[in-house]
Design a binder for these strands. Sequence first.
RNA 1: GGGAGUUUAGCUCAGCUGGUUCAGAGCACUUGCCUUACAAGCAAGGGGUCAUUGGUUCGAAUCCAAUAACUCCCACCA
Length: 883
Amino acid sequence: MEIASKYNPRAVEEKWYSFWLEKKLFHSEPDRRKPYTVVIPPPNVTGVLHMGHMLNNTIQDVLVRRARMMGKNACWVPGTDHASISTEAKVVKMLAERGINKRDLSRDEYMKYAWEWKEKYGGIILKQLRKLGASCDWDRTAFTMDDIRYESVIQVFVDLYNKGLIYRGARMVNWDPQALTAVSDEEVIYKESHGKLFYLRYFVEGEDKYIVVATTRPETIMGDTAVCVHPEDERYQWLKGKNVIVPGVGRVVPIIMDEYVDREFGTGALKITPAHDINDYNLGMKYNLNSIDIFNDNGTLNDNGGKYAGMDRFACRKAIMKDLEESGLVEKIEDYVNKVGHSERTDAVIEPKLSTQWFMKMSDIAKKALEVVEDGTIKFHPEKFKNTYRHWLENIKDWCISRQLWWGHRIPAWYFDVNGKMEIVVALNEEEAKKIAADKYGYTGELRQDEDVLDTWFSSWLWPISLFDGIRNPDNEEIKYYYPTDDLITAPDIIFFWVARMIMAGEEYRGEVPFKNVYFTGIVRDKLGRKMSKSLGNSPDPIELIEKYGADGVRMGMLLTAPAGNDLPFDESICEQGRNFANKIWNALRLVKGWAVSDELQQSPENEVSVQWMEQRMACVLEQIEKDFEQYRLSEALMNTYKLIWDDFCSWYLEMVKPAYGTPIDRETYLSTIAIFERLMCMLHPFMPFITEEIWHLLQDTDSEAKAELIAQSSIMIQHMPVSVFFDQRMLDDCAMAQDVVTGIRNLRNSRGLSPKEALELFVVCGDGKQMNSRFDGIIKKLANVSKINYVNEKVEGTISFMIGTTECFVPMSQNVDVEAERKKLEEELKYAEGFLASVMKKLGNEKFVNGAPEKVVAVERQKKADAEQKIAALKAQIANLK
RNA sequence: GGGAGUUUAGCUCAGCUGGUUCAGAGCACUUGCCUUACAAGCAAGGGGUCAUUGGUUCGAAUCCAAUAACUCCCACCA
């Protein structure tokens, strides 16, 4: 069979992904095996794959594929999030393209369009994940607004309301004037912005004196209802009990005194606008001040804005300042840098706004959620995120869960008036609401359902439960089997939004944590360390990367640079390493498959020992890899696998057993090699699923048709992951010694320009009990092209030498030796050895060390001394010999 | 303002409870090779006062303190 010299990922990847799907190898049903469950962090239904997803899902796939091969019933559930605000934006855009204005639509009509959009464009990202090789159980694909999830959300809302954990109230909320909805505290991003600090004059009522107040938001003076100073501020004692006139507005407002004011800031006087600032709101409550709302929902001024009514808030700021300056009411204007809240979803400047919203009480539920992380029931990787988590939960505020949108789970609350008073009924549906209204209030008329929907996170916090229908049917077989899930892989920026709340929901609805481990990935940055973003254009298109380097190559590139919790500076060139590795493996296959196999040939002792060594080596590295996985050190695990395959298997093992050109290999060695290769592919499969599947198939013995058919129907995915076994460290050490000899000879050839084709003779001085294990002689001969190895007691004349530890090796040279260069080299080595000895002697000469240090450490030092002395003697002799 | 973290080779990072895994890995780099699996390769090699300064100790990359630089999170003084 002719195999191309370059690995071509594209065809291979398509072929195997459809094969896996066709064979339903990703599908999971409860059975007797132990489950291993992962739920995908549901990407926005509007989303397209970006590098963050690539990283996150690659990690999940590695863990899932490994668990599957370890004999667990692995179930990775995919799905998407309805993402209310961003979907709303997409739908509005689609409508605009068709010349439709959202405002002209009824809620039902709008929802029809929204679903249409979702069916047509939503979830592209899930298709893209297939290109990456994600082994999700697609039969379980869910959506946060599909029937099961929708009903679960409503049920939870009703339940929490009945438990008194959800309430409705007027609060200061973060208002997004672009999306026209409230957003939670967590959805506000504070960004540094360069603005101005305006110093305005507030004249005292009936006097010609004024007080200067500094503000960054002069447009809100329309809503001023007081000016506040510190009660102990000497400068303002004279103002006690007086009123001042709001500049430009003419309203008379009181001076109040409160310790809240920072005397150092600005002039130490603060204007109070209770409707538009959270702190002012609190002061307003305390001093019973009027609250004048001057803004419309979209951020323009309302009728309270007087002549500025209808103007946008930022235009208004300019206009007011112009007017005030003309009236001589401006003291000065300074440049000022402060942090301004922006909406995470729309980037609009957030407006604090008083409005009636639904909230969820957090304090009790937060305590439980903190406990399970503190006591290690849930482990965070890396652990440092425990701190962040703790801090948030200890300072948690109630969660604003209502959003003024249509796309989402509509709040199941109905309103009606009884005797002129508005009553609220919360129920699973309108029918039940009517029943309650009738039973409880004797009301039988029409009900009005709340117009708002729930925060998107109010559905995703149930995800690990609702995916298995554990809210509606808490005792069903699936939830009992798959819950709690095992590992959650997510980015640290949603630790509050999502991770913390899922833990709360788990406690509340299952009395059990939703997952055992949380692996926080880093943030993918560009090589300059900047966050990847559309506006910078510094984010590579993952699909293009896959086409260029193969999915396996990209996966490897991502993983190599991604220790848990560290940001990864992503550079496309790292994918090259992955691609090159795939090619390397491919060529190893070409070599092995190119061998003629002989049944007559007996296995040589060299081949026998090579096979033994490789097996020991694998066992040793496997142990390391298992540790890496236990600690979620995936990049280490991959690196160890990489080195095992490239260095140990390709560079050493294959060279050891490779038959001379044109000659066959004995069957025993061949079969062992295939078996080793196969196991290596199993070890690598979680990282590079496609090429390993391809090679696994090509490696199989398919001499009979029946067997070939069997193999064709099978997959590496369902093979057993090799596990570590006891290994012989002595053998590994012995071989390492032989490898050092080979390297020594190669080095010698290299530095003296000797052709590798010219065979050399090797003398090894043994004695003093130190021996080289001659089991590896054959290998040395083969790999270093040595014709004969002589074990001698004496130094050999007319040779050049090198040392492996304390063992001296000599190679006779047919050509003239550059004595001067040789001497220089040896003398340098001698100098180093003497320096080394001196430092050891110093230690040993220190009585405190000899008495204080553990015996073992002192013994080691003594050994060092003996070795160094031996080496120095040998070097001196060699120098003397050079004449 | 509060908190957390980072600083080790040109780059990205390992380095656990102080001592032969102590100065490591991969990539990059240098030199020589188109050697019949692979130039997306082979062989060999050169790179580091472990951020700085003190302290503890027989002994510090490792423990402690201070300093500096960077990163992130939280709070949001108008």
